[in-house]
Structures are given as structure tokens and as C-alpha cells.
Design a binder for these strands. Structure first.
Lengths: 180, 180
DNA sequence: AAAAAACGATACCGATCGGTAGCGTGTTTG
DNA sequence: CAAACACGCTACCGATCGGTATCGTTTTTT
């Protein structure tokens, strides 16, 4: 669906509520009727947008981590990847969090996708913390998750320094198995 | 302005774009004419909302930190305060970040307030890192900022464990002046 | 008590919102 | 070749959007 790709780009760049269906029609060249044949409501389109973002996210995550040999190397690779992602021109924060900010209803279909996305991230971070031997596994994983989400929502502040270096240094300190 | 208080509550609970002026009128009992005499546009009202949130935030921050004697005690106090804040019922993330997610234009008056707010936070964290002797001062301050923003936007995930404990442990590890 | 400022109520504005109906044109599938 | 399907186009729907005009009433100030 070319309509979904266009909608996703507009939703991310301008915010979901700021983009009307007509704008998606004009930008994509797809008729409004056709869009509504594939997605019964705008909410469904937003949900599809987040699902697509989720899929691409883990795809890139896996690619970034693929060549890492050790668990520590995985963390470094993640730091590099996230740093580069945040510094990308046009980056405007985590789409899952952005949508959650726009739609207050926790039962909104898109919110459910966002929650699953963040749960999956925590799950993966816990696995990493496990193999790296970080002390209270669950707690350190949560700390890494907070750090990453904070990086996503830093609104360019992080880009002023070396984002990747900042993240990797924090990853190392938080996962180091030394003393209290 | 009672209208601002009502608007602030609605904006935070439902999202700015989800709240119409008419809803503010009905909820506050203030006539629409009166609101527009004090705030020329809705954007101005949103800006005032964030300015008010900013003021209250630092007021509470200062209060939370007031009784701390050492620099380390300041960090612990912040961890406790943020942990309690995030776990509060009806908490829906940092209003500054939420508004930034809703309004893509970086020049929006509310976005400027949000940027100043985050710059002020980084400034304060740098001062704390300075007095606690954290190694690359600016970098550690940024790491603390990311952690805090991540906590704000954790959407309840953090509340499932002990939020304050998770934050304080991370604060300690990130600011500890030891090796590497 | 008089003048000035603030407020409330109603009615309205054009624009846009998400969503639908109807109809014609291709394009695939059998 | 024919039947089914997918798409585009136009026009339209009621509702709501942010914002304004008008006017009478209340409250404050002097």
C-alpha cells in the first residue's frame, strides 16, 4: 500500500492529528475511497503506521547487532546505531512515544502496538543484561530502556555532543558488574 | 486565570489537539470571549500552559532538593521525587515532550518554552555533576537527562518496579567517579 | 455615585475534520 | 471473452475546528 507509506511519512513528520486524510490523498495520489477500502478508519491507519515502524525498527536493530561477537559488542553496536539514528536529519523522536502522546486513550489500537513495542525492547534488553552479567538484571535493563527512550526524545540535545559515545559510556557504566 | 488552569488540566490529560476551545469553555465556565481577551490564540494558551508547567516543575524540584545536605543526597532526592511523580495516578508523561510531539514546527512558541525547559534541566544536572565530581561532567549530565526524560515517557513501565530505586541506582552508577 | 474595565451569552464565520455514496474506468482472474 | 475486482473521481455529509462580532451585565476603580 503506497498510501500507508505516504501516511507514515506524513504522520511522523507532522504528527498524526496534524495530518488530514485529504493531505494523504493529495500527497500519495491514492483516492480516499481506496484508502478507506484498506483501512476502515484513520485510527486503523495510525495503527498500521506504528506496526510498520515497529517492524522496521527491529529489522534495523537486528542488522546493527548482527556482526557483534560478544554481549558487550552488542551494547556498543546498539549505542552506535541509536546515536546515528537520533542524529539523522528529520529525526523527530520515537514514533511510538509520539503517538502515545497524541492519543490519551490507553485502549487506542495504536497505543497497544506502542506498548507491545516497548515491552519487546525491554525483553531484548533483559536478555542482553543477562548475558553480560549485569547485576540486578531487570533493573539494569529498565535503566537501559529509559536511557534509550530518553535519547529518542531528546529533541536534538543529544546531537550536540557525540550521541553514540554518550550512550555507549552510559551502557558500560550501567552494565558493569562491579561494586555498588 | 481560571481558564488557564482548566485548559492546562485538559491539555495534559487529553492532549492539546484533542481539546477544543469549546470544551475549555464548558469545563471552566469562562466565556470564550474572555479567554480570547487574555490569550489571542490557542497557541498562546498552549504556550502559557507549558510556561506554567515549567514554573511548577522547578518549584517542586527545588522543594524536593531543599533538605539535601550533600550533592549525592541531592541526586537521591531527585530520584525519589521523580519516582513518585511518575507513579502518580493520571500521570501521562512530560508535558513539554508531549507538546513537542504534537507540534512539529520547532518555531512554535510552545516548542521554544519546551526547549528552554530542557536546557535548564541540563544546566542544573551539570551543576550537580560538577559538585559530585562526575567524570566527563557534561556527558554524565546528559546521561542523567536522558534517563530522567526516559522515566517521564516510560508510560507506566517504570511503575511496575520501584521507580525511585531504579533511578537512584542508575544515578549512582553514572556519577560514580571510578574507573574507565 | 459615576466612569471604566472586565465578563458572560449568543450567534455566527469560513475552513476543515473523518467518512460515505455513486459512478465510471481499468485490470486482473477464471 | 466475461465476470469479478480494484481503483480513481467528484460530490457530498454532519460535526467540529479556531476565532470573531455584538451587546448586555457585572464588577472594579476613582
Amino acid at each position: 500500500m503506497q498510501a500507508l507509506r505516504t501516511a507514515a511519512a506524513l504522520f511522523y513528520a507532522k504528527g498524526v492529528r496534524a495530518v488530514g486524510m485529504e493531505e494523504i490523498v493529495e500527497t500519495s495520489g491514492i483516492a480516499k475511497t481506496t484508502i478507506y477500502r484498506h483501512f476502515p478508519t484513520k485510527d486503523a491507519l495510525v495503527e498500521a503506521f506504528l506496526k510498520q515502524e515497529d517492524a522496521e525498527f527491529w529489522q534495523q536493530w537486528d542488522a546493527a547487532v548482527a556482526s557483534a561477537s560478544s554481549a558487550d559488542a552488542v551494547l556498543d553496536a546498539l549505542g552506535d546505531w541509536i546515536g546515528a539514528r537520533v542524529e539523522r536529519p528529520g529525526y523527530r523522536g520515537c514514533p511510538q512515544i509520539n503517538v502515545a502522546a497524541e492519543f490519551a486513550d490507553p485502549g487506542h489500537p495504536a497505543r497497544i502496538v506502542a506498548r507491545r513495542h516497548k515491552a519487546e525492547m525491554l525483553r531484548r534488553l533483559e536478555a542482553i543484561c543477562q548475558s553480560v552479567g549485569a547485576k540486578p538484571t531487570a533493573q539494569v535493563a529498565m535503566q537501559l530502556a529509559l536511557l534509550i527512550d530518553g535519547a529518542f526524545m531528546s529533541d536534538g540535545r543529544l546531537s550536540m555532543g557525540d550521541a553514540a559515545a554518550t550512550l555507549k559510556a552510559a551502557f558500560r557504566r550501567l552494565t558493569s558488574p562491579d561494586r555498588l
